[in-house]
Design a protein around this nucleic acid. Structure first.
Lengths: 158, 158
DNA sequence: GTAATTTATACAAGTACTTGTATAAATGTG
DNA sequence: CACATTTATACAAGTACTTGTATAAATTAC
């Protein structure tokens, strides 16, 4: 098989490969969720589990906990609200804030998701064992390293 | 500093971290391109360089070379055409096909991009040296491993 | 040599994310 | 206590990708 041009590319293609890996994982995890009759989008698993375990969660609290922007949290919540997995409830003390609570359907999802998440963890363990590398740790370290010392400051001759 | 909930998450959050790394790299690389007065979007660097080095490139050839879908190639070409970096030219032999050629502006970009890409490579080398891990290789290996043996087949008890 | 298929391309809509902007309620300042 | 600021939320548009659908030209099949 002739080698593709992109296969000769090196680490300057890292963003591309990293994005592809992310998309692939989401795709493969979605298959598993769908087969388990779950409606939660893969990217919302962590939101559902967090809401199942915490009380008095606001948009801001969810965003902070999951390490995403408020805008992202709003959009994920909108998606889950459409799926009738959660509801926004007015906060009586602070009328700006809204409490986010799982519906009955949402709680059922959470109950099914919890064991599935454990299984997914073990699937990723199998992957990391095969690669002989703690992929998650390395990727998170890379992010921290780039935040501390961005590409610009790593250019030759700077 | 209190640990965020998401920091306690393990590899089941791999897709999220991988996506974040990709976005961060694109963001940081864009800064460098913009400061160099370049208009090429980061994600189109490889397209520009490929077109600068190859003749008679069609949409299909570009997609194949870069390892992306035809739809993606079409969209990237559309974006670069809007920026006046390339043109579509009717193929006289095969009237279905269109040859993609860089404009003068596109060639200027390519001339500036070539040395910058080398610098970016060394910046990534510095990152990999710091991590003591060939990040690109690991990420590509992960993708190949997941294609060969998807998450579903890695679930405990299968 | 007409019909079915394959090849080459492109548009449109959907997902997950971003930034920019907006609005309303709480808080802090003089 | 009125005015400015901060906090909490949300909508809208833009990017990079996906899938689904469409169209036209070349190839193959009989």
């Amino acid at each position: 098989m002739k080698e593709k041009y992109f296969e000769s590319l090196g680490n300057e293609y890292l963003a591309h490969f990293s994005r592809r890996l992310s998309d692939l994982i989401i795709e493969q995890a979605s298959v598993i969720l769908q087969e388990a009759q779950l409606v939660t989008p893969t990217t919302a698993i962590s939101s559902i589990l967090f809401l199942a375990n915490e009380k008095d969660v606001t948009v801001a609290a969810l965003a902070d906990a999951l390490g995403v922007s408020h805008q992202m949290a709003t959009q994920r919540i909108n998606a889950l609200e459409k799926l009738k997995l959660l509801q926004r409830v007015e906060d009586q003390e602070d009328k700006r804030a809204k409490k986010i609570v799982l519906t009955e359907l949402g709680k059922q999802e959470a109950a099914l998701l919890t064991p599935l998440t454990q299984q997914l963890k073990s699937a990723f363990d199998s992957l990391e064992a095969e690669l002989d590398c703690s992929l998650t740790k390395v990727i998170r370290s890379a992010e921290l390293a780039l935040v501390a010392n961005p590409l610009k400051s790593r250019l030759a001759g700077e």
